[in-house]
Design a protein around this nucleic acid. Structure first.
Lengths: 221, 221
DNA sequence: CAAGCTATCAAGCTATCTATTGAATAACAA
DNA sequence: TTGTTATTCAATAGATAGCTTGATAGCTTG
């Protein structure tokens, strides 16, 4: 008899995860956690929300199965539940950009003028040849949590003072959190304005990370 | 100044799509549309919702960029907006099953006892050898909209009367809408009870379809 | 153009969600 | 113990979402 009820219960359970994606604040938290695990306070600061509100949203994401949490002394560290969750978030983000004009428009407004891009295959060639250097302009913490091999860390905020560290005779390739993060755009604009040859890597650390996993056969279940 | 506002606007736009996934009714509609495009009334009947309510949910899915619609005479035909949307829905579904105990439990309750499975590689081998026949037990309409090559259509409701059509000396491999659809489970249980050798194909038409697309290089943008 | 069918709209009620506030709890240090 | 910091809980008000009902609009057919 209750086969209908059972089917509805199934979709209701799936909607627990769906609901987690239904708030802009939660999406921003996911995006931050795609870079590195963080405490509630760090996430609150980075997202511009109150601590209590951030905590509530994190619990919603946790209830949706997207996050794991661990107490570390006096603070609680939240992290994405797994690479499948990371892939799901990137898929939602990219599909929304492809299908919703609103997202495209907002992205253009936020990122400003396009800067020259380079894809990861080309990047590898140029690094091998030694004609380019790779710079990670995300905050130090995110670099420490994981970065593209052979990248050096120069957080965007420090770029202005640390220009001398970058060789004059190399092309500079910059990456950050991903295609919807301003850091690399701003870095490239600043570098170009300073007379350097600079480009933005297409995709950021999460994309690189996922692609590596896929190639080495550690793919999804 | 408004760089914060711009970032928030970006996530708000992405959340338009996120919100579309936040209701069990909408997920069921997506799941139906993953099989074949349909009119509002068909979707209402299949999902057990009122027409008005179904229409509203379809509009929400449309606003989220997940559906396209086209007027066809007196009715409106809704369809998934693209293969990226199909892939996204399958990813959400599978991730929720992997990460949420509630989904696993609901799926077990709904599907009943496990039946023997076979993966698509093995399927191809057995079809080549001619030791197996492949049966699509979804409603006729969905078969017509797309099916695995070499499958024959026997909707579950007709299986009982059409048993004679199936050769006695072949293994019968059954598929339906996907891993969370009961049809194939029930078909295999019925066939086995009738003394046949039957198994369920792992994954249904949408999974097969996406996998084919990926192999032939028509992958995502 | 009138009838009939499909889909959408509009209004209303209830339930759920969001952000805020202030209090409560957990871990740790002195 | 007491104090301090990080996080969660509880209560609230305002906004949104969900489903129902009845009216409206679009297309087709006679």
């Amino acid at each position: 008899m209750g086969s209908h009820d059972n089917r509805h219960a199934l979709f209701e359970a799936m909607a627990l995860m769906g609901k987690a994606f239904a708030s802009p604040v939660r999406l921003e938290l996911l995006d931050l956690l795609a870079q590195a695990p963080r405490s509630v306070e760090e996430l609150a600061r980075a997202s511009g929300q109150s601590t209590a509100n951030t905590s509530q949203h994190l619990q919603a994401l946790h209830a949706g199965g997207l996050l794991v949490r661990r107490r570390e002394g006096t603070r609680v560290r939240y992290a994405l539940a797994g690479e499948d969750v990371l892939a799901l978030w990137l898929a939602l983000r990219d599909t929304s950009a492809a299908r919703l004009a609103e997202v495209e428009r907002a992205a253009r407004e936020y990122l400003g003028d396009d800067v020259e891009q380079i894809d990861s295959e080309e990047l590898i060639v140029r690094l091998d040849r030694g004609t380019a250097v790779l710079v990670d302009v995300r905050p130090q913490q995110e670099f420490t949590a994981g970065h593209i091999p052979s990248a050096r860390s120069i957080p965007l905020a420090e770029l202005r003072q640390r220009l001398a560290e970058l060789p004059d005779d190399h092309e500079i390739i910059v990456y950050c959190r991903g295609p919807f993060c301003v850091y690399a755009h701003e870095a490239v604009r600043h570098l170009t304005a300073s007379g350097r040859t600079a480009r933005r890597l297409q995709g950021g650390w999460p994309e690189w990370h996922l692609a590596q996993r896929a190639h080495t056969g550690k793919g999804a279940a």
